[in-house]
């Protein structure tokens, strides 16, 4: 992620310059599409698979282009702004999102035709079951906590960027993340009461 490296700062500055320039020269905006579409599509389609993710990713750039006059570089990076727009769009489809998580949790741990080596079976099945519990638990998280958690873990945004994307203080991001983690951790402990999975940190 490297959210604090000089390079990332340079990129963020350059993005902002491109965006500001696109106000007078709209065609410059195309650069931002080329830079961020694939990453943003990944984030959106993990939250809304199939056509839903495709739509959100595409619509994010349409909205961003229409609202480019409103972007304020003082309030965060272009990347954070784009992920914030996508997050708002996903929020409008939260039922579809939750259903997708539950469907994922119900699906087979691995495709029946995928060979599984005997010695790996136990760990792999256990990890897969744990992932399903966690994803199912996402469906039950309060929206605000889920947004913060998934911007960080699936969107790979820093806490600062997540704060900018959601328009909340960094400290609030921390407390939402903490709450969300506790909830999914509880879901995990349900399936793995012996505590074999290591604690983070």
């Amino acid at each position: 992620m490297g959210g604090h490296t000089t390079r990332a700062v340079d990129v963020a500055d350059d993005d902002a310059a491109v965006l500001l320039r696109s106000r007078a020269e709209p065609e410059c905006f195309a650069d931002l599409f080329e830079r961020y579409f694939a990453g943003l599509h990944g984030y959106a389609s993990r939250r809304l698979d199939g056509a839903g993710g495709d739509d959100v990713a595409a619509e994010t750039f349409l909205i961003a282009f229409r609202q480019r006059d409103r972007f304020d570089p003082a309030r965060g990076s272009v990347r954070a702004w784009l992920y914030g727009i996508a997050t708002n769009l996903i929020r409008a489809r939260r039922r579809e999102e939750a259903q997708g998580y539950l469907a994922y949790a119900r699906a087979a741990a691995h495709p029946p035709d995928e060979p599984v080596h005997e010695e790996q079976t136990t760990d792999r099945v256990a990890a897969e079951a744990a992932r399903k519990r966690i994803v199912a638990a996402l469906a039950g998280l309060p929206e605000r906590d889920r947004d913060a958690l998934l911007l960080v873990v699936w969107g790979e945004l820093s806490h600062e960027e997540t704060a900018a994307a959601l328009g909340i203080p960094v400290g609030t991001v921390g407390s939402r993340l903490h709450r969300a983690r506790r909830r999914i951790r509880a879901a995990l402990d349900d399936v793995n009461p012996t505590g074999r999975t290591a604690r983070h940190g």
Binding site: H41, G42, R46, D49, A58, A127, R131, K132, L188, G201
Partner: peptide, 30 residues
């Protein structure tokens, strides 16, 4: 693996297809 690692590797997606990218680009272009 802790819960964050598990979540990070859950529900993986493949990169957008060339068609998906082209369709989105076309909408922006329009």
């Amino acid at each position: 693996m802790d819960e964050i690692d598990l979540l990070a590797t859950a529900r993986p997606v493949t990169p957008p297809s060339a068609e998906t990218t082209a369709a989105a680009r076309e909408r922006l272009l329009d």
